[in-house]
Write a protein that binds this DNA or RNA. Structure first.
Length: 746
DNA sequence: GGGGGTAAGTTG
DNA sequence: AACTTACCCCCT
């Protein structure tokens, strides 16, 4: 008797099922259909082993393999999933759900047949397959436990309603002039079904009424037919990339400097060589915009398939199949492309490798470049990372580095201490006026959306806080409401200060996109001022066409295609982007500032940075006459400090978050956990905190957190073994390799 | 006793 | 994640 381990895309470890007696097991990594909570679901087989004797009694039988020939994902997908689960202290099913992107969530056709006639299914002959969906769960269970049935399942083809012919030729339609159009349309339809009556009319060049007549007379009807293959469109090829200037080594390496398209140009020879030799490189990008842009640049240069969450289910099926069958093709995608099977695996290339948008914010909380690197190691594929500058983590990777010159920009730093006007200083106002006079474009970046960071009373300083979270409510002027950016609570603006009841509340703290937009409209009447942020997502078509105007935006602007005529980019509040408590904040800000030229097709836009801290090391790097040298010193200093504090890449971190509705319960649980860890042998310097969460109360739950700091991955695993799952009102979540807000400032 | 809510336990 | 059971509060 054999037992199969089956991993479902649910937050659970693999579960064992018996391989039905007398059936051949399919491959590890193949999809299997298993009974689950009265129904049937698709899981991934992660292992096959002899079943223990007593298992035969308590385990249930799986139904069948859906992939009898070969694994559904890449050959290394199963070991990778299991390894990531262990390292991240999360169920393997969570990792699967996070990476499979719905590939296992297909409807199944589930059928059964009786071994011999049974009173449980009167009137059903033995050996006849019938749909299991019509049976009650208890009935099915009874038949199974009595050993009376065989079962089978198959992925239900996706069906679409299409217009099909009901006859095999045009005979009977009539041959007069009055029916000529109908004959033409039917002849067309006989070649294959049409999407609709209108589509058929268009394709065969007849009026829709002729098609309607065919349907009315019964020669054609709408039927649920298998969906035709959905082939996603590639973007039109952009202008060719410039010639490469560097020699790429044979093994793993990393590429820094330049602009995105320049880095891609350096990687192109590698892609050409591999596809020319029949290999399949995998290129991963963090965001859809980068995917679109990269696809356009590669489309004319190499055979290309793209895969992302933006595709329809049908299109994803098509790309998954094509990627598995087509050697000599580049697979370019966002993170769901990581697991896809390729026939002749080539290099694994991660673009924008240090971007925080790689970090999954829920579920498995994976940092995808790390997972991609592990996949490359397991599959013995070359790993390549590219980014705008060498962060401490890239510097410590040990891979040979190739460096391109840094992107050009002119930088002007405005010291806001003692500035005369707010939120736009005189320097910025002057340049904005020039932008209007010269009919150019400007991008003005705010560190938050909405009108202002808070509404406050001028008299007593009182602000209005969220009832669910420990945050001030943000003021949104366009809807004249206060909104919590954490839990989406929203309320009307109070008429008077809730504290003193005297004065009306006024906008205070950091200016948001709405405030800046209002200010610039006043400043530049008759000049178009657009806004782009989470509240206003519409792409500014006029600006993308190159028409003059101002774009006020959050950093979401980096998710727009480059604007053609930008001569000014302003960061209105540098300090607002550098959150304390995140030891990577400096590096992240540097990444952002170095990437600002990507907002435009112009070569050297003027960048104005307004700040209360003009001496910040990040700004000093950019102002230096030897930027490359300053950047290298910055990275070296960062590495030294990380080593001194045991932060990545010198050490490994995990954030343990404890939350409870009761304020004391969360805090006590966190303190107790610290005690537990120390008793279990953790050194005091390995357990930081507990401290209240970055937002001390979220959606009505108080949050406390501990930061575990270990010398290496193995030690971190040992520490995490002492972390219990939640109990009695306390929820515990673990985030290994946290990104974003850490615990301590650097 | 039961509706409405939340929390905890289970799934093979 | 989806589903079931347990429990509490409040109400009639």
């Amino acid at each position: 008797m054999l037992a199969a381990e089956v991993l479902l895309p649910l937050p659970l470890p693999p579960f064992s099922f018996l391989v039905p007696h007398g059936t051949e097991p399919g491959p590890v990594g193949g999809r299997v259909a298993v009974p689950w909570q009265g129904s049937v679901r698709i899981g991934l087989c992660t292992g096959i082993s002899p079943a223990r004797l007593d298992d035969g009694l308590k385990l249930r039988e799986l139904i069948c393999w859906l992939d009898p020939e070969q694994p559904f994902f890449a050959a290394e997908a199963v070991p990778l999933l299991l390894e990531l689960a262990t390292a991240g202290k999360i169920p393997a099913g969570t990792v699967l759900a996070g990476l499979a992107a719905g590939a296992l969530q297909r409807e199944l056709d589930h059928e059964l047949s009786l071994h011999e006639p049974s009173a449980l299914l009167p009137g059903v002959d033995a050996g006849v397959w019938l749909d299991a969906a019509g049976l009650e769960t208890e009935q099915l269970e009874q038949l199974r436990s009595d050993g009376l049935i065989s079962e089978r399942a198959s992925v239900r083809p996706r069906l679409v309603r299409r217009l099909a012919a009901t006859v095999s030729d045009t005979a009977g339609v009539g041959d007069g002039a009055r029916t000529a159009n109908q004959v033409t349309a039917l002849a067309h339809l006989l070649a294959g079904p049409a999407d609709s009556a209108a589509a058929l009319a268009r394709a065969s060049g007849v009026p829709v009424s002729a098609v309607r007549a065919l349907i009315k007379k019964g020669f054609a009807e709408y039927r649920d037919l298998e969906a035709p293959p959905a082939v996603p469109e590639l973007p039109a090829a952009a202008e060719p990339l410039p010639a490469p200037v560097l020699d790429v080594p044979a093994g793993p390496f990393q590429l820094t400097g330049g602009r995105r398209r320049i880095r891609l140009a350096e990687l192109l020879p590698l892609l050409r060589a591999e596809t020319g030799a029949g290999l399949n490189p995998l290129v991963l990008v963090p965001e859809q915009v980068v995917l679109t842009e990269t696809a356009a640049l590669l489309a004319g240069a190499v055979p290309l398939l793209t895969f992302s969450g933006d595709l329809s289910d049908d299109e994803r099926d098509w790309v998954r199949d094509s990627a598995a069958e087509t050697p000599g093709t580049v697979l370019l995608g966002t993170y769901p492309a990581l697991l896809l099977r390729q026939p002749a695996p080539g290099s694994v290339i991660v673009l924008e490798a240090e971007s925080d948008s790689w970090k999954q914010l829920s579920g498995a909380r994976l940092f995808i470049p790390r997972a991609a690197e592990r996949l490359a190691e397991l599959a013995e594929r070359r790993f390549v990372a590219a980014d705008v500058f060498e962060t401490a983590e890239l510097a410590a990777s040990g891979r040979p580095g190739l460096q391109l010159p840094l992107p050009e920009q002119r930088l002007h730093v405005t010291d806001l201490n003692g500035a005369s006007s707010w939120p736009l200083d005189a320097d910025l106002i002057r340049v904005l006026r020039q932008v209007r006079e010269r009919d150019r474009q400007a991008v003005i970046l705010a560190s938050r959306r909405g009108f202002s960071g808070a509404l406050a009373c001028l008299d007593c300083g009182e602000t209005v806080g969220c009832p669910n979270c420990d945050l001030p409510l943000r003021y949104h002027q366009t809807e004249n409401r206060l909104r919590c950016h954490q839990c989406h609570h929203s309320e009307a603006v109070p008429g008077a200060c809730p504290g003193c009841g005297e004065h009306a509340l006024e906008p205070r703290r950091t200016a948001g996109t709405e405030w800046l937009q209002e200010r610039i409209i006043k400043l530049l009447p008759d000049f178009p001022v657009h806004r782009f942020d989470a509240d206003s997502r519409e792409q500014p078509a006029e600006l993308l066409r190159g028409e003059p105007g101002v774009l006020v935006a959050t950093v979401a602007a980096t998710r727009l295609p480059p604007l053609p005529a930008v001569s000014l980019i302003a960061v209105t509040m540098f300090d607002g982007h550098v959150s304390m408590g995140d030891f990577r904040a400096g590096e992240n800000m540097l990444r952002l500032l170095l990437a600002l030229p990507e907002l435009t097709e112009q070569e050297r836009p003027l960048v104005i940075v307004q700040t209360f801290r003009p001496d910040d090391p990040v700004l000093e790097v950019l102002r230096s006459s030897d930027r490359q040298g300053a950047l290298e010193r910055f990275t070296a200093r960062t590495l030294e400090r990380r080593e001194a504090f045991g932060y990545p890449p010198a050490g490994r971190l995990a954030r343990v978050e404890l939350s409870a509705r009761d304020r004391l319960a969360a805090r006590r649980a966190a303190e107790r956990l610290r005690g537990t860890l120390l008793t279990a042998g953790a050194a005091p310097e390995e357990v930081l905190g507990p401290v209240p969460g970055g937002v001390a109360r979220v959606r009505g739950r108080y949050v406390w957190q501990l930061l575990l700091r270990a010398a290496g991955a193995d030690r971190l695993e040992v520490l995490l073994d002492s972390v219990p799952s939640g109990s009695s009102g306390v929820r515990v979540t673990v985030d290994v390799d946290p990104r974003g807000a850490g615990l301590l400032p650097d």
